[in-house]
Measured scan of single mutants.
Amino acid sequence: MGFKLLSKLLVYLTASIMAIASPLAFSVDSSGEYPTVSEIPVGEVRLYQIADGVWSHIATQSFDGAVYPSNGLIVRDGDELLLIDTAWGAKNTAALLAEIEKQIGLPVTRAVSTHFHDDRVGGVDVLRAAGVATYASPSTRRLAEVEGNEIPTHSLEGLSSSGDAVRFGPVELFYPGAAHSTDNLIVYVPSASVLYGGCAIYELSRTSAGNVADADLAEWPTSIERIQQHYPEAQFVIPGHGLPGGLDLLKHTTNVVKAHTNRSVVE
């Protein structure tokens, strides 16, 4: 069995187990497998329904001669939608809004960016022009300005110390501490036991640490421990890039980060 097929099978099995364990909360999309990078042309966006009122959005972007996937989250909030992270750029984010209108038909009224990198804030200006209120932590807003990236308009308070959590509509926002970046936030959907790890969490097929220019490698494993301790009931975990899975993604990420750190020390 090929690795790609095995990865998709694991996603399907995880979703099936969740649907059985929580039949009222989960209505997993039966329309197909989780979209992969090879299936999404740059400039297009796919939506994948995880649970009743919960979707991931998947886009792709060219970077350094390669094409990478990027995940975000959409959560229903009454007759409105909360968006977590842009679709990595203005063109993708405009396509995301169009796809949401086509498939869901509810307005996106608020959006949260989970850290300051372009795959999370690139497209904020498109959201703002569409009347979406954009939010991020003060740290993310400051770092985005320093980096020359787009800056969300509103500040999220109460997320300055490791372990801080605040309720934001249908989700809980959690600051686990520094990891992929010093400002990275985690998003949890309690009604569906869905954990969105953003770039602080890796997919299972990833074996290298990737972009760690703004990471705190020493603190990252401790931050992941905080996530595990705060959300032990999480059933569906979405990484910032690639295929979702279960809580095993947290341990896998820790292993990859520690291996990278150990290699760096040896070198």
Rank of each mutant, 00 (worst) to 15 (best):
M1A: 04
A178H: 10
A218H: 14
G246Q: 08
E99F: 08
Q49Y: 11
A98S: 13
V194H: 02
A133F: 11
P244W: 07
W88K: 00
T114V: 00
P221R: 08
F26V: 15
G242K: 05
L143W: 07
H117N: 01
K258L: 11
K91H: 11
P244T: 03
A129Y: 15
S70N: 06
D118R: 08
D119P: 01
E233Q: 13
S27M: 15
E150Q: 08
E145M: 14
P41W: 06
S16H: 15
T140P: 02
F26D: 14
A218D: 13
I17G: 14
E101S: 12
V171N: 00
L9C: 15
G169E: 04
G65F: 06
I20S: 09
I186K: 01
A21M: 14
A59R: 04
V37K: 11
S181Q: 04
P239E: 01
R142A: 14
D77L: 02
G123L: 04
P138M: 08
A209F: 08
R76K: 07
T60F: 08
R206N: 15
H252A: 04
A234M: 06
H230D: 07
V187Q: 00
R142I: 13
D29L: 10
V132M: 04
T254D: 11
Y196D: 01
N92P: 03
T36D: 14
V37I: 13
G123Q: 05
Q235C: 06
P176H: 04
K258W: 08
I151F: 07
T261I: 12
V171I: 09
H57E: 01
I74H: 01
S161K: 13
L195G: 00
N262R: 11
A129I: 07
R76W: 05
V75D: 04
D29A: 12
Y12H: 10
S70Q: 03
F174E: 00
L204C: 05
E99G: 08
F26S: 14
V75Y: 00
L10G: 14
N71E: 02
L83S: 00
G78D: 14
V132P: 00
E44H: 11
E145S: 14
L47N: 03
I224G: 03
I100C: 00
I20G: 14
E150K: 06
I20L: 11
T254Q: 12
G78H: 11
R128M: 14
H260L: 08
D64W: 09
A192R: 10
D85A: 00
G246I: 04
I17S: 13
T114C: 00
S155W: 08
A213E: 10
V189H: 06
S155T: 14
I84K: 00
W88S: 02
A94L: 14
A51V: 12
D118Y: 07
L127W: 00
E145R: 14
V28G: 10
P35W: 09
V187K: 01
K102P: 06
L6C: 15
I104W: 00
A51P: 05
V187T: 04
L106R: 09
I50V: 12
R263F: 12
R142F: 12
N71H: 03
S56E: 15
T14V: 08
G148I: 02
T134M: 05
R226V: 07
V108I: 09
Y202T: 07
A51N: 10
S223C: 04
T182M: 14
S264R: 12
D216Q: 09
T182E: 13
S27T: 12
V194F: 00
A15Y: 11
V42Q: 10
W88N: 06
G210R: 05
P41G: 13
V45E: 04
A19W: 15
Y135K: 01
S137R: 07
H241E: 01
K102Q: 10
N184T: 03
T182V: 12
V132R: 01
F26A: 12
V42G: 10
A59V: 09
E203M: 01
I100K: 00
D119V: 04
S264F: 09
E80K: 08
E147A: 15
L73Q: 02
Y196F: 15
G131E: 07
T114N: 00
T114Q: 00
R142G: 11
P107D: 08
L143R: 10
P138I: 08
W220A: 03
E147G: 12
E267D: 13
Y196C: 05
D118G: 08
N71F: 00
T253G: 01
V266E: 15
G72D: 05
D164Q: 12
E101Q: 15
F168Y: 06
R128D: 12
S208Q: 11
I58F: 08
Y48S: 10
G122T: 08
L10M: 12
E219C: 04
L250S: 02
Y135H: 07
V45Y: 03
V212L: 08
A129L: 10
G148T: 06
T182N: 12
I201H: 05
S56D: 10
G43Q: 05
W88D: 00
K251P: 14
V126T: 10
T153A: 12
L185W: 01
E145G: 14
S30T: 13
V132H: 00
A178E: 08
L6R: 09
V189C: 02
S16N: 06
T86L: 00
T14R: 09
S162I: 10
Y202L: 15
S62F: 07
I40L: 15
E80S: 09
G32R: 09
P23C: 13
F26N: 11
E225K: 12
H57T: 00
P244I: 09
L81K: 00
S160M: 12
K4S: 10
A218Q: 14
E147H: 15
P69N: 15
A234S: 09
Q49M: 12
V187N: 04
V67N: 15
A25Q: 15
D216F: 05
D64T: 08
G245P: 03
S31K: 10
E101N: 14
A21T: 14
G123R: 04
V265F: 09
G131H: 07
G245L: 02
A130Y: 14
N184M: 01
F168G: 02
G43V: 03
Y231V: 04
A178Q: 09
W55C: 03
A87N: 04
Y68T: 09
I104S: 00
T93N: 00
I40C: 05
V75C: 03
A213H: 12
R141E: 02
H154D: 08
H260T: 12
A130S: 11
I151D: 03
G105L: 06
A129S: 12
S193W: 11
P239M: 01
R206I: 15
H117K: 01
G245R: 03
L185G: 02
N149R: 12
L250R: 02
G177W: 04
V11F: 10
G210Q: 05
T93P: 00
I186M: 06
R263H: 11
V237N: 00
R76V: 09
I84C: 00
P69A: 15
L217S: 05
Y34P: 09
R120I: 00
R76S: 12
R110P: 05
V146S: 14
L97K: 00
V28N: 12
R141T: 05
R110F: 02
H230L: 09
S113L: 05
I238W: 03
Y202H: 08
W55T: 02
F168P: 02
I74W: 02
W88Y: 01
L5M: 15
A51W: 07
L83W: 02
S208I: 12
V42L: 09
L156G: 02
A66P: 07
D77T: 02
I20T: 11
H154A: 08
F63H: 09
G78C: 05
D118L: 07
I227R: 03
S22I: 11
P69R: 08
G2N: 14
V54F: 04
K102R: 12
G177H: 02
E99Y: 06
H180F: 00
A179D: 02
L250H: 04
D29S: 10
A129P: 03
H241T: 03
K102I: 13
P221S: 10
V126Y: 12
E233F: 12
V45N: 04
T14W: 05
L10S: 15
P232V: 08
V189I: 10
A192S: 10
A19D: 15
A111D: 02
V67S: 15
A21G: 13
S137P: 07
D216M: 07
